[in-house]
Amino acid sequence: MADKGMTPIVKTITGWVKGFIMLFGIYIVLYGHLTPGGGFAGGVILAMVFVLLTLAYGREEALRRFRIGVASELDSIGALMFLVIAILGIAGTLGGKFFTNYIAKANPGTPFELFSAGIIPLCNIAIALKVASSLFLVFILLVLMRVIHDPREKA
């Protein structure tokens, strides 16, 4: 653990900021329908937390906190959640069309408030799950592939 990753300075700073970065990512996702950003941008920021952990502490630490199996499941869950939200629109009483914003129709809410845009925030959450986990998977798989072909790691 001690000899992996970067210097103690980087590790300490990473330890301080990782929570804030994650909070910022969640903010971008949840306020996606009101401010610039949304599911994709927020998801990228969430994935970056784990990328930062990989860079600072080494891949074992990042994989201990976000296992590949979990990431893969979340990836599928995000996509399925998005699809289920869309398909529910077809169900007769809720609106009748694929992707109908049935929540906004039943309960529009006040514009520019957090609970206002119907299914759009829910879709943003689904997209964020999908983007965060698949971007992390892409990154970590590229890291692992490099290791397999690195002759120094064989010992």
Partner: peptide
């Protein structure tokens, strides 16, 4: 009509789970 896209897409993500 939309189910032609939605069904295979949904099952594609469901199967690996």
């Amino acid at each position: 009509i939309p189910l032609f896209v939605a069904i295979p897409l949904g099952v594609a993500f469901f199967i690996p789970m």
